[in-house]
Computed example of a mutant assay.
Amino acid sequence: MAKMVLTASYIALSGTDLSNWANSIELSAEVDEKDVTTFGSGGWKEVLGGLRSGTLAIEFKQDVTASALDSIMWPLFGTVVTFEVRLANAAVGTSNPKYTGSALVKEWAPISGNVGDDASVKVSFPTSGAVTRATS
């Protein structure tokens, strides 16, 4: 089994590469569990998958200089945007698949932190529609 250390992942929102500002990324997907147990189930619970959903969570190092992170993210607040994430900032392939979809930019915290902290922004965006995996 291959092992991997994340050193240069790729994250793009609305077609803009934000990898230089991100230091943490998580794309998760889940499916609703629907109970379809009947009297004929022999006393065992039966389930099927229902609606699927996902979450894109990112931690950014804030940058409010002109044309930097905050000026890119603020106009996206409240909109559904496309995203693409990869484990490595390298060509897409069988050992580096890309995951794409759309997500609602439902939160943005331009100012967050305590005295002496780095200026970081942690966000979590729900996906909207299908998330796809591709190797080409």
Rank of each mutant, 00 (worst) to 15 (best):
T7V: 07
A8G: 12
I11M: 04
I11L: 12
A12Q: 08
T16M: 03
T16C: 00
D17T: 02
D17F: 04
L18Q: 03
S19H: 09
N20I: 03
N20Q: 13
W21D: 08
A22S: 12
I25N: 08
E26T: 08
E26V: 05
L27C: 08
S28L: 01
A29Q: 14
A29K: 12
A29Y: 02
E30F: 03
V31H: 09
V31C: 04
D35W: 02
T37F: 08
F39S: 12
V47Y: 10
G50R: 08
L51R: 09
S53V: 05
G54S: 13
A57G: 11
A57K: 14
E59F: 00
E59S: 14
F60Q: 08
Q62R: 14
Q62I: 01
D63K: 01
D63T: 02
D63E: 13
A68E: 15
D70H: 11
M73F: 08
T79Y: 09
T79K: 13
V80I: 13
V81E: 10
F83G: 11
F83V: 01
E84H: 06
E84L: 04
E84N: 11
V85A: 10
R86Q: 14
A88D: 06
A88N: 13
N89E: 09
N89Y: 07
V92L: 01
V92D: 03
G93P: 01
S95R: 07
N96K: 07
P97V: 05
P97A: 13
P97E: 06
P97W: 08
Y99F: 15
G101S: 10
S102V: 00
A103N: 02
K106L: 07
E107G: 09
W108Q: 09
P110K: 00
I111F: 10
G113W: 02
G116S: 10
G116K: 10
D117P: 03
D118M: 10
